Computed example of a mutant assay.
Amino acid sequence: MKTNVVAVINQKGGTGKTTTTINLGSALSKLGKKVLLLDLDPQSNLSYSLAVTTPAATLADVFQGEKSINDVLVERDGLWVVPGSNELVDIEISLVTQPEREKFLKSILAEVKGFDFILIDCPPSLSVLTLNALTAAQEVLIPLQMEVLTLQGLDQIMNTIKKVQKTFNPQLKVKGVVVVMFDVRRKLSLEVLEYLQENVREKIFRSQIRMNVKLAEAPSFGRSVLDYDGSSNGAKDYRALAEEYLES
């Protein structure tokens, strides 16, 4: 079985990155795919959002060589999770002085077998940990809000991806941009989307993730929106995105 490793990145916080990792993963799982979610963010929002709050071990233990990645997997609603922790801050500091520091995660993931997808929730920065994710991944998924500063941020992300392609991972591909927190009533949202469609070469998924209160509520219950309220617009949007992802 070939595992598709996907880095979900945006260098800004609060952009729907964790929400997209969880709910795209959940939607892919419900389409029959075996999915692993990896929480690479020291803030551990993904782990918290799936009620993995006191794991016996975390990804930091794997980086330190104290555990195998297979020892730290936690199952939630048909998804498998590698929990994060704030100790990843210390891991990042220690990686800076290591030779081939960008390749640690790739070697860790080589031990994982039997998954169709590994979705990596990256930190909200273009950091050493994010470089590890980009070096380990085959594909990049970029959630974007339709705001003016989004355009500047996308340029930064694309420049980083080009550097990684040139230096560490020539096979890395941009799967596409996901429009998140979309409000069709806002003129600015429509204008930014139109600009992206006319000026960005990368694929922009047709399936847009609308503003939806159920998406905001689901993490409080430790579940994906598909398990929390499968009839909500949030669940419908992520199901559509998963289907489009598999077709593209």
Rank of each mutant, 00 (worst) to 15 (best):
S26R: 05
Y238S: 11
S26V: 09
T53V: 15
Y238A: 10
D61F: 07
M1R: 02
K106C: 00
I142R: 03
V35S: 11
A133V: 10
M1I: 10
S44F: 13
K166T: 08
V200A: 12
A7Q: 08
P99H: 07
D183E: 13
D227P: 06
Q171V: 06
L141W: 14
G176M: 12
S231V: 06
E202R: 14
D116I: 03
L95G: 04
A7V: 05
S189T: 10
R76M: 08
L246W: 08
D227Q: 02
L50R: 12
Y245N: 01
L246E: 12
L149P: 00
S29C: 14
D39T: 02
L144R: 01
E87V: 03
G16T: 03
G234I: 04
Y238L: 12
N212K: 00
V179S: 04
E75G: 06
T20D: 04
E147S: 02
L95P: 03
D116Y: 02
V200N: 09
S68G: 14
T18M: 08
L119D: 02
L172F: 12
N23G: 10
S44K: 09
V112C: 05
G25T: 03
A137S: 15
E75R: 14
T53D: 14
L36W: 04
L241V: 09
R101M: 03
G114I: 01
K236Y: 14
D229R: 12
D121M: 10
S189M: 03
V52A: 13
G222T: 05
Q156Y: 06
G114Y: 03
K162V: 08
L31V: 10
D227L: 07
G32N: 12
N45H: 15
T19L: 13
G32S: 13
E247I: 00
I120L: 13
A7E: 11
V164P: 02
K33N: 13
E87A: 13
I161S: 08
A60G: 08
L36R: 03
L151C: 09
I157F: 02
L88P: 01
A133Q: 10
P143M: 13
D71K: 00
V8G: 04
L226R: 12
Q171C: 02
A235V: 14
L144D: 04
V128F: 08
L109D: 04
T130W: 02
